[in-house]
């Protein structure tokens, strides 16, 4: 808990890391300046891109005592303003799941190898990033907690599968080996409450450690304070649940 008499310092910067297939990618990395061992968290940006909200949120986690890293999943698609790069990636059908899993896993390993790591790393994502957070934690060992915020297309129909997204993430549920916190809005169109129920039932069926919260007053993306979907009460409660969950799991 932060108090006004505390010293607070933070380093936040762009760094280069190895991603999927050892490709060099860049990442935004923020960490508190202190002498304690700290937990880590990987932030997976949403389809709209590696944008300012993700930089702010990376610093938010550092403010709360985490070494936080947000890899640029669109590094291979060129450089420019984030929305221009996101438009290019959208036109190409999004980043391939396999590549995202590789990039996120390498970011997790980067955090675990830090001399001041406490050895625990969570993964966080919103929207498509929420989907990728769950998908990665199911496919790779080494994550200690997952925070999935309104992950769309965790439950996919056969018709929605393609070369870049060949498997519906919910089909990997059995492989998940860490606790998961899920935050969703009852008015969301993807994931719909029915899809969240399917997701939850799979977790229950496989005896997974999960905590799902459905906000009645919210739709999709209710943390985004500059969008009409913003819901202050759900946002405030959601952040409290996230930090409570992380404190218990990391």
């Amino acid at each position: 808990m932060y108090t006004t008499d505390m010293y607070e310092g933070m380093i936040a910067e762009t760094i280069n890391i190895n991603g999927h297939n050892n490709d060099q990618i860049n990442a935004y990395f923020a960490r508190p300046i202190n002498s304690k061992a700290v937990p880590g968290i990987v932030l997976i940006h949403h389809l709209p891109g590696w944008d300012e909200w993700y930089r702010e949120t990376t610093r938010k986690f550092a403010h709360h005592g985490f070494a936080a890293i947000s890899p640029n999943l669109y590094f291979r698609d060129g450089h420019g303003e984030p929305d221009d790069i996101a438009a290019k990636v959208r036109a190409e059908g999004g980043a391939p799941d396999e590549q995202v899993i590789g990039d996120v896993t390498k970011a997790m390993k980067y955090l675990k190898n830090l001399p001041y790591s406490n050895g625990k790393v969570a993964v966080f994502g919103t929207c498509s990033g929420g989907r990728h957070a769950f998908l990665t934690a199911c496919n790779e060992k080494g994550f200690d907690a997952v925070i999935e915020c309104w992950g769309g297309k965790v439950v996919m129909s056969k018709e929605e599968l393609n070369d870049k997204q060949p498997v519906s993430p919910v089909d990997y549920t059995k492989e998940l080996n860490c606790p998961i916190l899920g935050l969703f809005g009852a008015d969301d169109e993807s994931p719909t409450p029915e899809q969240v129920k399917i997701h939850e039932n799979e977790l229950k069926k496989h005896n997974k450690n999960y905590e799902f919260h459905m906000y009645e007053s919210a739709g999709h993306g209710f943390f985004y304070y500059d969008k009409p979907v913003y819901r202050p009460e759900a946002c405030q409660d959601g952040w409290e649940k996230i930090f409570d969950f992380l404190e218990r799991k990391l």
Binding site: P48, H79, D84, I85, A87
Partner: peptide, 27 residues
């Protein structure tokens, strides 16, 4: 999702010129 318009979903039109380094775009 739009980037700038205050809507949940919108019709987004990108006019694109493909160039080597990066696309030029009117959004």
């Amino acid at each position: 999702h739009p980037t700038h318009l205050h809507m949940d979903y919108s019709i987004n039109i990108d006019f694109i010129q493909e160039v080597e380094e990066n696309n030029k775009r009117i959004a």
